[in-house]
């Protein structure tokens, strides 16, 4: 590559990457919006407890705060790996 090419070199098109990253993080942040600040910690401590019984990743635990007519419901769901449900 000549020196002129170097001077003229443009950044790689990266808008697509930006858009994809934003789509994911915005969706994630919206799902816990308005939720108590302790949720992330609660989520990781729950993971420790669950791990004593069954192996799951942090991704398997989802937390939602639902609000309707004055009530707030903390909704936790844990996706168990195949074949581990029941006893």
């Amino acid at each position: 590559m000549g020196i002129l090419d170097f001077l003229k070199r443009k950044p790689e098109p990266s808008a697509g990457i930006a858009k994809e990253r934003l789509r994911i993080i915005v969706a994630q942040e919206r799902s816990t919006r308005g939720a108590p600040d302790y949720l992330p910690l609660l989520r990781s401590e729950l993971l420790e407890v669950i791990k004593k019984y069954v192996h799951v990743d942090l991704d398997a635990i989802s937390i939602n705060v639902e609000r309707d007519s004055g009530h707030e419901v903390l909704e936790l769901s844990v996706a168990l790996p195949d074949g581990k449900s029941g006893s």
């Binding site: 443009k10 950044p11 098109p13 990266s14 808008a15 697509g16 930006a18 858009k19 934003l22």
Partner: peptide
């Protein structure tokens, strides 16, 4: 934006 370096209005 045209060069794909910046998020567009619709993005």
């Amino acid at each position: 934006v045209a060069a794909g370096e910046m998020l567009s209005v619709s993005d």
